[in-house]
Amino acid sequence: MNVLIIEDEKMLALEIGDFLEKEGYLCEWAKTCEKASEKIYVNSYDFILLDLGLPDGDGFDLLKELKALDQREDAVIILTARGAVEDRVRGLDLGADDYLAKPFSLLELSARMQAIKRRRYKISRNEFDIHGFSIDLHNKEVRFHTEKVPLTPKEFEIFHYLVLNKNRVISRMQLTEHIWGDVLEINSDSNFVDVHVKNLRKKLAACTTTDWFETIRSVGYKINVT
């Protein structure tokens, strides 16, 4: 899948590109509105990551330009440091698929892209299988072989996010921001996420051994898959 990164900050564009290429995407980069406009007219993309504050214009104009083109399905995710609520509303009104305020987590970006893929292209798998558990994203439920595991919506989200980022340490902070959103609270490293993880692990452990579900002390959690 190909991605166009429209971002005036070179270092950030490189980091995003680096990450997405490891995830299997093909990336292109446009630094200005003008360059981006050229690229958009020539190629179509699966994803366009759009920064709003560009040196030679406003990202919203670019979004309008894109939406005026016929026969285009490019998914647009707005990435911006202008965290105003109005910008978010306006972006989504203009037809953007999602909106992430800078600074954002690359893992979160990847998760959002997966969600869009599921919604729009129906390419991504709707089921994950892991250590005998299968995660049904469509019905939002987890089964152990055929037995349904009674998870709460939050527990389901946590399990899904950890499986999505399997073999990676996910910190409490990343998990909290993914599940509860980017709440403006300095001390967001609260332990309330631990309660949910504890309950989740208890429910999973009732089915089978869960030594693959690791707690990384003082950091977070990790699900290992070999």
């Binding site: 900050e9 270092m11 950030l12 980091e15 995003i16 990450f19 440091a81 800078k102 600074p103 954002f104 987590s105 690359l106 893992l107």
Partner: peptide, 8 residues
Amino acid sequence: SIVYSRIE
């Protein structure tokens, strides 16, 4: 944002 992405 740059540093955050780089560390990730």
